[in-house]
Amino acid sequence: MLSRVASSIYWMTRYLERTENVARFIDVNLHMMLDLNIEESQQWEPLIITTGDDKQFFKKYDKATQENVVNFLTFDRTNPNSILSTLKSARENARSIKEIISSEMWQQINKFYYKIQDAEKNGIAADSIYDFCNMVKTENHLFIGITDSTMHHDEGWQFARLGRHIERADKTSRILDVKYFILLEKPEDIGTPIDNIQWAALLTSASALEMYRKKFHQISPKKIAQFLVLDREFPRAIKFCIINAEQALHYITGSVLGTFQNEAERQIGKLRAQLDYADIDEIIDTGLHEYLVDSFQMQLNNVGNAINDTFFNI
């Protein structure tokens, strides 16, 4: 497969996953605001720090009000990570490989894009942000379903799977990290009912509340972290994503799992092995934030760079 084509497929699904997760970020923050009496800026500023866009944001806006942040994350064309921008990038990538993907996939991306454009034109009323976020999630889920049921499960499809899971792992780690920021201000709240409400909201944003309840029944921060980081079976858990990305990579190269032929396989193998033998108490001792940002996200970046060097930028 041509490197350019593989790269377009990979970035198409990465951008789409990013689009979906920006909606999840907004969603998690809105959920957490309920029942909380803190200043608006305390609530919204951490969000753009977590997504890594704070510099870009303050170039354009003075204050991290809900309105500004939501604008910035939804339709701001100057923000490359806004819902509109990422979807546009996904569509540009899809357009260049129209003859490789199925026409159903292309139609779905187009439909999705036009829906977002319409929403931009009509504006989102304050009380319909939930619906908007939900629509974004559903449209991407539709795309994933269409991809799985209409595209040949060959090398190209594996690149789609690779891109999606790498992006999702990164975003789950950031959603989890949002919670860290909010708690930072008020350590005395830990373990209180408010705290539990927030954790439940976080699970909801990762579409994880019911699945979590089935497994652990009661809300416990440690178990939630364990669930979102180390679960093998929950599709938005970090470990699940890394296992899937690794499998996709080995399907592409044909080398045996547990071995490596290139830097991409070595980096992801290392990361997966770490997760295999990680323990949640250890992680919490290191500090959840430190683990997510300084260790996991850094290593995931290395994986992304290695994929780029191995397959796309030859």
Binding site: M1, L2, S3, R4, E155, F159, I252, F311, I314
Partner: peptide, 15 residues
């Protein structure tokens, strides 16, 4: 940009 000249031949860049 998918093609490259190397060692007197033309190649395409693949995965």
């Amino acid at each position: 940009s998918d093609l490259i000249v190397s060692d007197g031949f033309v190649f395409m860049k693949t995965t």
